[in-house]
Design a protein around this nucleic acid. Structure first.
Lengths: 236, 236
DNA sequence: GGATTCAGAGAGCACTGCTCTCACATCTCA
DNA sequence: TGAGATGTGAGAGCAGTGCTCTCTGAATCC
Protein backbone atom coordinates (compact mmCIF):
# COMPACT_ATOMS: atom_id res chain seq x y z
CA UNK A 1 0.00 0.00 0.00
CA UNK A 2 1.43 3.33 -1.00
CA UNK A 3 1.98 6.05 1.55
CA UNK A 4 -0.54 8.77 0.63
CA UNK A 5 1.86 11.49 1.83
CA UNK A 6 4.68 10.59 -0.51
CA UNK A 7 4.43 11.55 -4.18
CA UNK A 8 3.43 8.65 -6.40
CA UNK A 9 6.26 6.79 -8.09
CA UNK A 10 6.24 6.50 -11.90
CA UNK A 11 5.20 2.91 -11.50
CA UNK A 12 2.23 3.86 -9.32
CA UNK A 13 1.23 6.52 -11.82
CA UNK A 14 1.41 4.07 -14.71
CA UNK A 15 -0.65 1.63 -12.69
CA UNK A 16 -3.29 4.24 -11.92
CA UNK A 17 -3.43 5.21 -15.57
CA UNK A 18 -3.90 1.60 -16.62
CA UNK A 19 -6.73 1.09 -14.13
CA UNK A 20 -8.28 4.30 -15.43
CA UNK A 21 -8.10 2.95 -18.97
CA UNK A 22 -9.63 -0.35 -17.94
CA UNK A 23 -12.55 1.46 -16.33
CA UNK A 24 -12.98 3.64 -19.40
CA UNK A 25 -12.99 0.65 -21.74
CA UNK A 26 -15.26 -1.24 -19.38
CA UNK A 27 -17.68 1.66 -19.37
CA UNK A 28 -17.78 1.60 -23.17
CA UNK A 29 -18.37 -2.13 -23.28
CA UNK A 30 -21.03 -1.83 -20.62
CA UNK A 31 -22.84 0.93 -22.47
CA UNK A 32 -22.67 -0.97 -25.74
CA UNK A 33 -23.43 -4.54 -24.76
CA UNK A 34 -24.82 -4.50 -21.21
CA UNK A 35 -23.61 -5.80 -17.89
CA UNK A 36 -24.02 -9.52 -18.43
CA UNK A 37 -21.99 -9.29 -21.63
CA UNK A 38 -19.14 -7.40 -20.01
CA UNK A 39 -16.06 -9.42 -20.87
CA UNK A 40 -12.67 -8.98 -19.29
CA UNK A 41 -11.08 -10.62 -22.30
CA UNK A 42 -12.67 -8.10 -24.65
CA UNK A 43 -11.44 -5.25 -22.47
CA UNK A 44 -7.98 -6.81 -22.55
CA UNK A 45 -8.09 -6.96 -26.33
CA UNK A 46 -9.04 -3.29 -26.58
CA UNK A 47 -6.26 -2.51 -24.15
CA UNK A 48 -3.85 -4.31 -26.47
CA UNK A 49 -2.88 -6.82 -23.86
CA UNK A 50 -3.41 -10.50 -23.16
CA UNK A 51 -6.31 -11.40 -20.89
CA UNK A 52 -4.28 -12.58 -17.94
CA UNK A 53 -2.53 -9.22 -17.75
CA UNK A 54 -5.63 -7.33 -16.69
CA UNK A 55 -5.86 -9.54 -13.64
CA UNK A 56 -2.80 -7.63 -12.40
CA UNK A 57 -5.06 -4.59 -12.07
CA UNK A 58 -8.54 -5.93 -11.47
CA UNK A 59 -9.17 -8.85 -9.18
CA UNK A 60 -12.03 -10.33 -11.16
CA UNK A 61 -14.85 -9.53 -13.51
CA UNK A 62 -17.06 -8.79 -10.52
CA UNK A 63 -14.49 -6.35 -9.19
CA UNK A 64 -14.59 -4.50 -12.50
CA UNK A 65 -18.37 -4.50 -12.31
CA UNK A 66 -18.14 -2.92 -8.87
CA UNK A 67 -15.80 -0.22 -10.17
CA UNK A 68 -18.21 0.49 -13.00
CA UNK A 69 -21.13 0.53 -10.56
CA UNK A 70 -19.41 3.17 -8.44
CA UNK A 71 -18.44 5.05 -11.58
CA UNK A 72 -22.03 5.11 -12.81
CA UNK A 73 -23.47 6.10 -9.43
CA UNK A 74 -20.98 8.93 -9.34
CA UNK A 75 -21.90 10.20 -12.78
CA UNK A 76 -25.63 9.99 -12.05
CA UNK A 77 -25.16 11.72 -8.71
CA UNK A 78 -23.18 14.53 -10.31
CA UNK A 79 -25.76 15.05 -13.03
CA UNK A 80 -28.64 15.08 -10.56
CA UNK A 81 -26.99 17.41 -8.07
CA UNK A 82 -26.02 19.85 -10.80
CA UNK A 83 -29.59 19.89 -12.12
CA UNK A 84 -31.05 20.44 -8.65
CA UNK A 85 -28.63 23.20 -7.69
CA UNK A 86 -29.37 25.10 -10.88
CA UNK A 87 -32.65 26.10 -9.28
CA UNK A 88 -33.21 28.34 -6.26
CA UNK A 89 -33.13 26.51 -2.95
CA UNK A 90 -36.70 27.51 -2.13
CA UNK A 91 -38.17 26.26 -5.41
CA UNK A 92 -38.96 22.89 -3.92
CA UNK A 93 -41.32 21.72 -6.57
CA UNK A 94 -38.93 22.81 -9.28
CA UNK A 95 -36.05 21.00 -7.62
CA UNK A 96 -38.13 17.85 -7.26
CA UNK A 97 -38.93 17.93 -10.97
CA UNK A 98 -35.34 18.76 -11.88
CA UNK A 99 -34.09 15.79 -9.89
CA UNK A 100 -36.50 13.39 -11.54
CA UNK A 101 -35.88 14.79 -15.02
CA UNK A 102 -32.12 14.53 -14.52
CA UNK A 103 -32.42 10.88 -13.52
CA UNK A 104 -34.59 10.20 -16.55
CA UNK A 105 -32.27 12.04 -18.89
CA UNK A 106 -29.26 10.11 -17.66
CA UNK A 107 -31.16 6.83 -17.78
CA UNK A 108 -32.24 7.35 -21.38
CA UNK A 109 -28.74 8.31 -22.48
CA UNK A 110 -27.11 5.43 -20.57
CA UNK A 111 -29.66 2.62 -20.56
CA UNK A 112 -27.21 -0.21 -19.92
CA UNK A 113 -25.57 1.58 -17.03
CA UNK A 114 -28.98 2.55 -15.64
CA UNK A 115 -29.90 -1.11 -15.87
CA UNK A 116 -26.81 -2.01 -13.88
CA UNK A 117 -27.85 0.35 -11.10
CA UNK A 118 -31.62 -0.09 -11.02
CA UNK A 119 -32.44 -3.11 -13.14
CA UNK A 120 -32.48 -6.77 -12.34
CA UNK A 121 -29.38 -7.82 -10.43
CA UNK A 122 -26.59 -9.43 -12.44
CA UNK A 123 -26.76 -13.15 -11.67
CA UNK A 124 -23.99 -14.31 -9.39
CA UNK A 125 -22.91 -10.76 -8.64
CA UNK A 126 -23.45 -9.19 -5.27
CA UNK A 127 -22.44 -5.55 -4.97
CA UNK A 128 -20.28 -4.98 -1.89
CA UNK A 129 -22.48 -2.77 0.28
CA UNK A 130 -19.61 -1.01 2.02
CA UNK A 131 -18.34 0.43 -1.25
CA UNK A 132 -21.59 1.10 -3.10
CA UNK A 133 -24.14 2.35 -0.55
CA UNK A 134 -22.38 5.72 -0.27
CA UNK A 135 -22.43 6.63 -3.95
CA UNK A 136 -25.67 4.72 -4.43
CA UNK A 137 -27.71 6.83 -2.01
CA UNK A 138 -26.80 10.26 -3.30
CA UNK A 139 -29.96 10.65 -5.36
CA UNK A 140 -32.40 9.50 -2.70
CA UNK A 141 -30.56 11.65 -0.19
CA UNK A 142 -31.02 14.57 -2.54
CA UNK A 143 -34.74 13.95 -2.75
CA UNK A 144 -35.09 13.63 0.98
CA UNK A 145 -33.16 16.88 1.34
CA UNK A 146 -35.59 18.69 -0.92
CA UNK A 147 -38.60 17.34 0.97
CA UNK A 148 -37.00 18.18 4.30
CA UNK A 149 -36.22 21.74 3.27
CA UNK A 150 -39.75 22.15 2.00
CA UNK A 151 -41.16 20.87 5.26
CA UNK A 152 -38.99 23.17 7.34
CA UNK A 153 -40.18 26.05 5.15
CA UNK A 154 -43.80 25.08 5.79
CA UNK A 155 -44.29 24.10 2.17
CA UNK A 156 -44.90 20.39 2.57
CA UNK A 157 -48.33 19.16 3.55
CA UNK A 158 -50.32 15.99 3.06
CA UNK A 159 -53.77 16.29 1.51
CA UNK A 160 -55.12 14.13 4.29
CA UNK A 161 -53.08 13.56 7.44
CA UNK A 162 -53.98 9.90 7.93
CA UNK A 163 -51.23 8.39 10.07
CA UNK A 164 -49.32 5.39 8.81
CA UNK A 165 -49.64 2.09 10.64
CA UNK A 166 -47.33 1.74 13.65
CA UNK A 167 -44.99 -0.87 12.12
CA UNK A 168 -44.39 1.41 9.16
CA UNK A 169 -44.03 4.49 11.35
CA UNK A 170 -41.18 2.78 13.16
CA UNK A 171 -39.31 2.21 9.89
CA UNK A 172 -39.69 5.82 8.89
CA UNK A 173 -38.78 7.09 12.33
CA UNK A 174 -35.49 5.21 11.99
CA UNK A 175 -34.82 6.86 8.64
CA UNK A 176 -35.84 10.22 10.03
CA UNK A 177 -33.43 10.13 12.92
CA UNK A 178 -30.60 8.60 10.91
CA UNK A 179 -30.79 11.24 8.19
CA UNK A 180 -31.66 13.99 10.68
CA UNK A 181 -34.90 14.91 8.95
CA UNK A 182 -37.71 17.06 10.26
CA UNK A 183 -40.35 15.53 7.95
CA UNK A 184 -42.84 13.40 9.87
CA UNK A 185 -43.32 9.73 9.01
CA UNK A 186 -46.59 10.29 7.15
CA UNK A 187 -44.95 12.63 4.66
CA UNK A 188 -41.82 10.51 4.43
CA UNK A 189 -43.96 7.59 3.38
CA UNK A 190 -45.46 9.72 0.63
CA UNK A 191 -42.00 10.80 -0.41
CA UNK A 192 -40.97 7.16 -0.66
CA UNK A 193 -43.93 6.48 -2.91
CA UNK A 194 -43.03 9.41 -5.16
CA UNK A 195 -39.49 8.10 -5.20
CA UNK A 196 -40.36 4.57 -6.29
CA UNK A 197 -42.92 5.91 -8.75
CA UNK A 198 -40.36 8.09 -10.50
CA UNK A 199 -38.11 5.09 -10.93
CA UNK A 200 -41.01 2.94 -12.00
CA UNK A 201 -41.84 5.34 -14.81
CA UNK A 202 -38.21 5.64 -15.87
CA UNK A 203 -37.63 1.88 -15.76
CA UNK A 204 -40.73 1.21 -17.83
CA UNK A 205 -39.46 3.59 -20.44
CA UNK A 206 -35.84 2.42 -20.43
CA UNK A 207 -36.64 -1.27 -20.25
CA UNK A 208 -39.18 -1.08 -23.04
CA UNK A 209 -42.29 -1.96 -21.06
CA UNK A 210 -44.26 0.79 -22.75
CA UNK A 211 -44.09 -1.05 -26.03
CA UNK A 212 -42.57 0.25 -29.21
CA UNK A 213 -45.26 2.71 -30.25
CA UNK A 214 -47.70 3.06 -27.39
CA UNK A 215 -46.57 6.52 -26.40
CA UNK A 216 -45.18 9.06 -28.79
CA UNK A 217 -45.24 11.94 -26.30
CA UNK A 218 -43.02 10.39 -23.65
CA UNK A 219 -41.58 13.65 -22.36
CA UNK A 220 -45.07 14.95 -21.78
CA UNK A 221 -46.13 11.70 -20.15
CA UNK A 222 -43.27 11.87 -17.67
CA UNK A 223 -43.91 15.53 -16.89
CA UNK A 224 -47.58 14.73 -16.35
CA UNK A 225 -46.63 12.00 -13.89
CA UNK A 226 -44.28 14.38 -12.12
CA UNK A 227 -47.01 16.95 -11.65
CA UNK A 228 -49.15 14.41 -9.88
CA UNK A 229 -46.29 12.86 -7.93
CA UNK A 230 -45.23 16.23 -6.58
CA UNK A 231 -48.73 16.52 -5.19
CA UNK A 232 -48.56 13.00 -3.79
CA UNK A 233 -45.35 13.89 -1.99
CA UNK A 234 -47.01 16.95 -0.50
CA UNK A 235 -45.34 19.63 -2.59
CA UNK A 236 -47.96 22.20 -3.51
CA UNK B 1 -46.60 -29.37 -39.49
CA UNK B 2 -49.08 -31.77 -37.94
CA UNK B 3 -52.71 -31.65 -38.89
CA UNK B 4 -54.52 -30.44 -35.77
CA UNK B 5 -57.54 -32.53 -36.64
CA UNK B 6 -55.74 -35.85 -36.61
CA UNK B 7 -54.81 -37.45 -33.31
CA UNK B 8 -51.14 -36.95 -32.44
CA UNK B 9 -48.82 -39.78 -33.36
CA UNK B 10 -46.72 -41.39 -30.65
CA UNK B 11 -43.72 -39.54 -32.02
CA UNK B 12 -45.48 -36.22 -31.77
CA UNK B 13 -46.56 -37.00 -28.25
CA UNK B 14 -43.03 -37.91 -27.24
CA UNK B 15 -41.79 -34.74 -28.84
CA UNK B 16 -44.33 -32.62 -26.98
CA UNK B 17 -43.39 -34.33 -23.72
CA UNK B 18 -39.71 -33.60 -24.29
CA UNK B 19 -40.36 -29.94 -25.02
CA UNK B 20 -42.49 -29.81 -21.90
CA UNK B 21 -39.60 -31.25 -19.89
CA UNK B 22 -37.16 -28.76 -21.38
CA UNK B 23 -39.42 -25.88 -20.39
CA UNK B 24 -39.81 -27.30 -16.90
CA UNK B 25 -36.07 -27.70 -16.44
CA UNK B 26 -35.46 -24.29 -17.98
CA UNK B 27 -37.92 -22.77 -15.54
CA UNK B 28 -36.04 -24.32 -12.65
CA UNK B 29 -32.69 -23.08 -13.90
CA UNK B 30 -34.16 -19.65 -14.54
CA UNK B 31 -35.61 -19.43 -11.05
CA UNK B 32 -32.39 -20.63 -9.47
CA UNK B 33 -29.70 -18.82 -11.42
CA UNK B 34 -31.39 -16.05 -13.42
CA UNK B 35 -31.91 -15.41 -17.09
CA UNK B 36 -28.35 -14.52 -18.09
CA UNK B 37 -27.10 -17.75 -16.54
CA UNK B 38 -29.64 -19.93 -18.31
CA UNK B 39 -27.59 -22.59 -20.04
CA UNK B 40 -28.87 -24.94 -22.68
CA UNK B 41 -26.03 -27.33 -21.89
CA UNK B 42 -27.04 -27.46 -18.25
CA UNK B 43 -30.64 -28.16 -19.24
CA UNK B 44 -29.36 -30.92 -21.52
CA UNK B 45 -27.39 -32.46 -18.66
CA UNK B 46 -30.44 -32.44 -16.41
CA UNK B 47 -32.41 -33.99 -19.24
CA UNK B 48 -29.80 -36.77 -19.41
CA UNK B 49 -28.92 -35.95 -22.96
CA UNK B 50 -26.02 -34.45 -24.87
CA UNK B 51 -26.25 -30.73 -25.60
CA UNK B 52 -26.70 -30.96 -29.34
CA UNK B 53 -29.79 -33.08 -28.87
CA UNK B 54 -31.71 -30.24 -27.27
CA UNK B 55 -31.35 -28.28 -30.48
CA UNK B 56 -33.73 -30.80 -32.06
CA UNK B 57 -36.47 -29.32 -29.88
CA UNK B 58 -35.43 -25.76 -29.25
CA UNK B 59 -33.96 -23.60 -31.97
CA UNK B 60 -31.61 -21.66 -29.73
CA UNK B 61 -31.07 -20.38 -26.26
CA UNK B 62 -33.08 -17.29 -27.14
CA UNK B 63 -35.94 -19.47 -28.32
CA UNK B 64 -35.96 -21.20 -24.94
CA UNK B 65 -35.92 -17.80 -23.28
CA UNK B 66 -38.96 -16.84 -25.32
CA UNK B 67 -40.77 -19.99 -24.27
CA UNK B 68 -39.96 -19.26 -20.65
CA UNK B 69 -41.07 -15.66 -21.08
CA UNK B 70 -44.45 -16.77 -22.36
CA UNK B 71 -44.63 -19.38 -19.62
CA UNK B 72 -43.96 -16.77 -16.94
CA UNK B 73 -46.41 -14.25 -18.39
CA UNK B 74 -49.01 -16.97 -18.39
CA UNK B 75 -48.45 -17.90 -14.79
CA UNK B 76 -48.48 -14.29 -13.67
CA UNK B 77 -51.60 -13.60 -15.68
CA UNK B 78 -53.39 -16.59 -14.18
CA UNK B 79 -52.45 -15.60 -10.65
CA UNK B 80 -53.56 -12.01 -11.14
CA UNK B 81 -56.84 -12.86 -12.82
CA UNK B 82 -57.69 -15.38 -10.13
CA UNK B 83 -56.99 -12.83 -7.42
CA UNK B 84 -59.08 -10.16 -9.14
CA UNK B 85 -62.03 -12.42 -9.82
CA UNK B 86 -62.15 -13.56 -6.22
CA UNK B 87 -63.68 -10.16 -5.42
CA UNK B 88 -67.10 -8.81 -6.49
CA UNK B 89 -67.06 -7.07 -9.86
CA UNK B 90 -68.20 -3.79 -8.33
CA UNK B 91 -65.50 -3.68 -5.67
CA UNK B 92 -63.22 -1.67 -7.91
CA UNK B 93 -60.85 -0.49 -5.25
CA UNK B 94 -60.58 -4.00 -3.85
CA UNK B 95 -59.91 -5.43 -7.28
CA UNK B 96 -57.25 -2.82 -7.94
CA UNK B 97 -55.50 -3.75 -4.69
CA UNK B 98 -55.92 -7.45 -5.35
CA UNK B 99 -54.31 -7.09 -8.75
CA UNK B 100 -51.32 -5.21 -7.38
CA UNK B 101 -50.92 -7.55 -4.42
CA UNK B 102 -51.04 -10.57 -6.70
CA UNK B 103 -48.32 -9.15 -8.92
CA UNK B 104 -46.19 -8.41 -5.87
CA UNK B 105 -46.77 -11.85 -4.38
CA UNK B 106 -45.77 -13.56 -7.61
CA UNK B 107 -42.76 -11.28 -8.03
CA UNK B 108 -41.46 -11.99 -4.55
CA UNK B 109 -41.91 -15.73 -4.96
CA UNK B 110 -40.33 -15.76 -8.45
CA UNK B 111 -37.79 -12.95 -8.46
CA UNK B 112 -35.70 -14.24 -11.35
CA UNK B 113 -38.72 -14.79 -13.55
CA UNK B 114 -40.13 -11.40 -12.58
CA UNK B 115 -36.77 -9.93 -13.55
CA UNK B 116 -37.05 -11.60 -16.93
CA UNK B 117 -40.41 -9.96 -17.52
CA UNK B 118 -39.94 -6.53 -15.98
CA UNK B 119 -36.25 -6.10 -15.29
CA UNK B 120 -33.43 -4.98 -17.47
CA UNK B 121 -33.52 -6.66 -20.86
CA UNK B 122 -31.26 -9.66 -21.38
CA UNK B 123 -28.36 -8.40 -23.51
CA UNK B 124 -28.54 -9.59 -27.08
CA UNK B 125 -32.03 -10.94 -26.62
CA UNK B 126 -35.03 -9.35 -28.26
CA UNK B 127 -38.40 -10.85 -27.37
CA UNK B 128 -40.47 -11.52 -30.50
CA UNK B 129 -43.35 -9.08 -30.14
CA UNK B 130 -45.85 -11.20 -32.07
CA UNK B 131 -45.56 -14.04 -29.56
CA UNK B 132 -45.15 -12.12 -26.30
CA UNK B 133 -47.36 -9.04 -26.47
CA UNK B 134 -50.50 -11.12 -26.07
CA UNK B 135 -49.54 -12.87 -22.84
CA UNK B 136 -47.53 -9.84 -21.75
CA UNK B 137 -50.43 -7.44 -21.70
CA UNK B 138 -52.87 -9.49 -19.67
CA UNK B 139 -52.12 -7.70 -16.41
CA UNK B 140 -52.29 -4.17 -17.78
CA UNK B 141 -55.43 -5.13 -19.65
CA UNK B 142 -56.85 -6.33 -16.36
CA UNK B 143 -56.09 -3.04 -14.68
CA UNK B 144 -57.60 -1.05 -17.52
CA UNK B 145 -60.67 -3.24 -17.30
CA UNK B 146 -61.10 -2.45 -13.61
CA UNK B 147 -60.73 1.28 -14.21
CA UNK B 148 -63.09 1.16 -17.15
CA UNK B 149 -65.75 -0.70 -15.19
CA UNK B 150 -65.38 1.77 -12.35
CA UNK B 151 -65.76 4.67 -14.72
CA UNK B 152 -68.84 3.20 -16.34
CA UNK B 153 -70.30 2.72 -12.86
CA UNK B 154 -69.62 6.36 -12.05
CA UNK B 155 -67.01 5.43 -9.45
CA UNK B 156 -63.93 6.88 -11.08
CA UNK B 157 -63.21 10.58 -10.73
CA UNK B 158 -60.13 12.75 -10.77
CA UNK B 159 -59.56 15.08 -7.82
CA UNK B 160 -58.93 17.87 -10.26
CA UNK B 161 -60.02 17.56 -13.85
CA UNK B 162 -57.04 19.33 -15.41
CA UNK B 163 -56.80 18.16 -18.99
CA UNK B 164 -53.63 16.54 -20.25
CA UNK B 165 -51.61 18.30 -22.92
CA UNK B 166 -52.81 17.62 -26.49
CA UNK B 167 -49.87 15.46 -27.57
CA UNK B 168 -50.50 13.20 -24.62
CA UNK B 169 -54.23 13.19 -25.10
CA UNK B 170 -53.70 11.82 -28.61
CA UNK B 171 -51.70 8.88 -27.25
CA UNK B 172 -54.38 8.03 -24.72
CA UNK B 173 -57.16 8.47 -27.23
CA UNK B 174 -55.46 5.83 -29.37
CA UNK B 175 -55.31 3.44 -26.41
CA UNK B 176 -58.91 4.27 -25.52
CA UNK B 177 -60.27 3.43 -28.92
CA UNK B 178 -58.07 0.37 -29.42
CA UNK B 179 -59.09 -1.18 -26.11
CA UNK B 180 -62.65 0.11 -26.40
CA UNK B 181 -62.53 2.00 -23.11
CA UNK B 182 -64.94 4.61 -21.82
CA UNK B 183 -62.43 6.23 -19.47
CA UNK B 184 -61.38 9.68 -20.67
CA UNK B 185 -57.74 10.48 -21.38
CA UNK B 186 -57.21 12.42 -18.15
CA UNK B 187 -58.13 9.43 -16.05
CA UNK B 188 -56.28 7.02 -18.27
CA UNK B 189 -53.13 9.02 -17.72
CA UNK B 190 -53.64 8.72 -13.99
CA UNK B 191 -54.21 5.01 -14.36
CA UNK B 192 -50.93 4.73 -16.26
CA UNK B 193 -49.15 6.48 -13.42
CA UNK B 194 -50.67 4.12 -10.88
CA UNK B 195 -49.62 1.26 -13.10
CA UNK B 196 -45.97 2.26 -13.39
CA UNK B 197 -45.88 3.15 -9.70
CA UNK B 198 -47.05 -0.28 -8.65
CA UNK B 199 -44.29 -1.84 -10.70
CA UNK B 200 -41.78 0.68 -9.43
CA UNK B 201 -42.51 -0.30 -5.86
CA UNK B 202 -42.38 -4.01 -6.63
CA UNK B 203 -39.17 -3.71 -8.64
CA UNK B 204 -37.47 -1.75 -5.87
CA UNK B 205 -38.37 -4.49 -3.45
CA UNK B 206 -37.47 -7.43 -5.69
CA UNK B 207 -34.28 -5.91 -7.06
CA UNK B 208 -33.02 -4.93 -3.63
CA UNK B 209 -33.10 -1.16 -4.06
CA UNK B 210 -34.63 -0.72 -0.62
CA UNK B 211 -31.45 -1.92 0.99
CA UNK B 212 -31.10 -4.89 3.26
CA UNK B 213 -32.69 -3.49 6.42
CA UNK B 214 -34.29 -0.18 5.55
CA UNK B 215 -37.83 -1.45 5.77
CA UNK B 216 -38.97 -4.24 8.03
CA UNK B 217 -42.68 -3.67 7.42
CA UNK B 218 -42.67 -4.13 3.66
CA UNK B 219 -46.19 -5.50 3.40
CA UNK B 220 -47.49 -2.45 5.20
CA UNK B 221 -45.38 -0.15 3.04
CA UNK B 222 -46.82 -1.62 -0.14
CA UNK B 223 -50.37 -1.45 1.18
CA UNK B 224 -49.82 2.14 2.16
CA UNK B 225 -48.64 2.94 -1.34
CA UNK B 226 -51.66 1.18 -2.81
CA UNK B 227 -54.04 3.26 -0.73
CA UNK B 228 -52.58 6.43 -2.16
CA UNK B 229 -52.26 5.07 -5.69
CA UNK B 230 -55.91 4.04 -5.76
CA UNK B 231 -56.70 7.66 -5.03
CA UNK B 232 -54.30 8.83 -7.70
CA UNK B 233 -56.04 6.62 -10.23
CA UNK B 234 -59.36 8.12 -9.23
CA UNK B 235 -60.79 5.19 -7.28
CA UNK B 236 -62.53 6.57 -4.23
C1' DG C 1 25.46 -3.88 -9.49
C1' DG C 2 22.80 -7.34 -7.30
C1' DA C 3 18.21 -8.40 -5.37
C1' DT C 4 13.47 -7.57 -5.50
C1' DT C 5 9.27 -6.39 -7.44
C1' DC C 6 6.11 -6.23 -11.09
C1' DA C 7 3.99 -6.46 -15.86
C1' DG C 8 2.85 -9.17 -19.49
C1' DA C 9 2.81 -13.61 -22.32
C1' DG C 10 1.26 -18.06 -22.93
C1' DA C 11 -0.63 -22.43 -21.76
C1' DG C 12 -4.28 -24.65 -19.73
C1' DC C 13 -8.91 -25.89 -17.31
C1' DA C 14 -13.75 -25.84 -17.28
C1' DC C 15 -17.49 -23.72 -19.06
C1' DT C 16 -20.74 -21.49 -22.74
C1' DG C 17 -23.70 -21.42 -27.61
C1' DC C 18 -23.93 -23.52 -31.71
C1' DT C 19 -22.92 -26.44 -36.14
C1' DC C 20 -21.89 -30.42 -38.47
C1' DT C 21 -21.61 -35.29 -39.49
C1' DC C 22 -22.60 -39.92 -38.54
C1' DA C 23 -25.15 -43.95 -36.72
C1' DC C 24 -29.30 -45.85 -35.46
C1' DA C 25 -34.14 -46.29 -34.47
C1' DT C 26 -38.75 -45.53 -35.95
C1' DC C 27 -42.36 -44.46 -38.87
C1' DT C 28 -44.73 -44.30 -43.58
C1' DC C 29 -46.28 -46.10 -47.57
C1' DA C 30 -46.21 -48.73 -51.79
C1' DT D 1 -43.42 -56.88 -45.61
C1' DG D 2 -39.68 -54.36 -47.09
C1' DA D 3 -37.58 -49.94 -48.73
C1' DG D 4 -37.18 -45.23 -48.20
C1' DA D 5 -37.98 -41.19 -45.49
C1' DT D 6 -37.81 -39.05 -41.17
C1' DG D 7 -36.54 -38.20 -36.52
C1' DT D 8 -33.15 -38.59 -32.71
C1' DG D 9 -29.07 -38.71 -30.14
C1' DA D 10 -23.84 -38.88 -29.89
C1' DG D 11 -19.59 -36.86 -30.68
C1' DA D 12 -16.29 -33.76 -32.52
C1' DG D 13 -15.22 -29.22 -33.26
C1' DC D 14 -15.15 -23.85 -33.37
C1' DA D 15 -15.05 -19.62 -31.06
C1' DG D 16 -15.88 -17.46 -27.11
C1' DT D 17 -15.91 -16.80 -21.63
C1' DG D 18 -13.52 -16.38 -16.45
C1' DC D 19 -9.69 -17.55 -14.14
C1' DT D 20 -5.04 -19.76 -12.59
C1' DC D 21 -0.44 -20.91 -13.12
C1' DT D 22 4.29 -20.51 -14.61
C1' DC D 23 7.84 -18.25 -16.97
C1' DT D 24 10.49 -14.26 -18.87
C1' DG D 25 12.10 -9.83 -19.03
C1' DA D 26 12.11 -5.20 -17.48
C1' DA D 27 11.90 -1.60 -14.04
C1' DT D 28 12.94 -0.28 -9.43
C1' DC D 29 15.15 -0.27 -4.95
C1' DC D 30 19.04 -0.34 -1.93
Amino acid sequence: MADPLKPPTPREQARARTIEQIIRLGREHLALHGAAALSLRAVARDLGVVSSAVYRYVESRDELLTLLLIDAYGELGDAVEAAVEALPADDFRGRFAALALAVRKWALSEPARYALLFGSPVPGYQAPAERTTGPGTRVVTGLMGILDSAYRAGKLAAPDAAAVVPALAADFEAIRSEMDLAVPATLLARGALAWTSVFGAISFEVFGQYGADTFSARDELFRHHLQILAGVAGLE
